[in-house]
Amino acid sequence: MLKVEEVSVRFGGVQAVAGMSLEAPPGRVTGLIGPNGAGKTTLFNVITGLQKPNTGRVLLGDRDLTKASTAKRARAGVGRTFQRLEVFGSLTVYDNVLLAAELAHVKNPSAAAHQLLERVGLGGFAAQQAGVLPTGMARLLELARALAGNPSVLLLDEPGSGLTEAECKALGDLLLSLTADGTAVLLVEHDMELVMRVCQHVYVLDFGQLLAEGSPAEVSANPAVQIAYLGAEEVSA
């Protein structure tokens, strides 16, 4: 179980995240939504060690990861994808996933890489150079790469962005199959159709603070959430 306790991040005069806590238990897709600039990616960066929090803790099970390096957290089982892509552009699609499998000491990394590429629908693009992939495919590649590490917690930062509707549906199926395997998925996504379909629990962030939490239906019916997204005038109209 991933636990984030009272995490705060301040950039100069801007409070990016203020006392945020959340839990992502195994076998559940946990949604993390909010308008642009709400602090979702910053929170992902804190969880993966790319951003040092001013206060708060990050726990994986009983293990306190707050001071661990990014690589150490990854080896502990925290995998992620990025909103702004971080594929290895000079490597082929296959080599991206192969490297991740090798780093995770998977028994047959080559077979695992091919299998994962098939699973995310990139089997036909293994020999392509990753740097020239369209955004949507690069996101799927990042997902395959993250999965190659066999993470117990998977952080996905807008994986549906750039995908067609059919692919988005396939992505949803994939996420649900992951939770069936016991993986904890923390999903940042603007596509609410996807969020509504796959998430069992959703946290809503606004200006770095927790605005609401609950089931997708509860959250979308919450007046505070509606005001945060549309503004008070539109909601009353």
Binding site: L50, T70, A74, R75, F88, S90
Partner: peptide
């Protein structure tokens, strides 16, 4: 080889490498 892949990955995205657990 694996070393080559690690090297290229390091040049392309140090952040990506770190999130895969790669010690540089």
């Amino acid at each position: 080889s694996t070393l080559g892949r690690r090297l290229v990955a390091l040049g392309d995205s140090p952040a990506g490498c770190a999130t895969l657990g790669m010690g540089i």
